[in-house]
């Protein structure tokens, strides 16, 4: 039930952000819509640990800044490749182990790989992710497992 309440609050904040007009009638409609949608989500079983993962809130605050930094670094790297007239790419397909247990952390890891320019998670087979990397170096960096450790840490701090 806690998840339903927090989901209703998130939805209400979304409504208030988009609305910008704060009269009694409009705020009441917002509250009713938010509660109704949260209850519907509860009945549809999407307001669970996976669909609305509030328990990851705090560890996200340390993981995301690191991820943003990684994104900037690798985006600059891919930019250099694109600007270079000889286009020095060496596309590589590789498999990367993932050590996460829960689905949310696995999705976070796979999404982080995709979000970082230069690597894309293509498929998940068991506890391995099939990754397409734009250069050999990108693939090797990922195989070294720095991001995997970060994600496991992110999961472990729940």
């Amino acid at each position: 039930m806690g998840r339903v309440i927090s989901m209703a609050i998130v939805l209400l904040v979304f409504w208030l952000t988009l609305s910008g007009h704060y009269t009694t009638f409009l705020i009441t409609s917002g509250v009713i819509s938010a509660v109704a949608i949260a209850l519907l989500a509860y009945r549809m079983d999407v307001a669970d640990r996976e669909g609305h993962p509030i328990h990851l809130g705090l560890s996200a605050l340390t993981y995301w800044p690191w991820l943003v930094w990684q994104i900037i670094l690798s985006a600059l790297n891919v930019t250099r490749i694109i600007i270079n007239p000889s286009l020095p790419i060496s596309p590589t397909l590789t498999r990367v182990k993932m050590s996460q247990k829960t689905d949310v952390a696995r999705v976070t890891y796979a999404n982080s790989i995709t979000l970082t320019p230069g690597t894309i998670s293509v498929d998940i087979e068991g506890d391995e992710i099939l990754v397409h990397a734009i250069t050999r170096d990108n693939a090797s960096d990922l195989e070294a497992g720095g991001m995997d450790r970060r994600c496991t840490q992110f999961e472990g701090s729940v």
Partner: peptide, 27 residues
């Protein structure tokens, strides 16, 4: 959403057997 879309594209390319141009295959 953008990594979800990218991953969905890559995955459906694999399921449709679109072969990537590779310099090295470590799989």
């Amino acid at each position: 959403t953008s990594p979800v879309a990218s991953h969905a594209i890559a995955r459906s390319m694999r399921h449709r057997n679109v072969k990537p141009v590779l310099s090295e295959d470590r799989t």
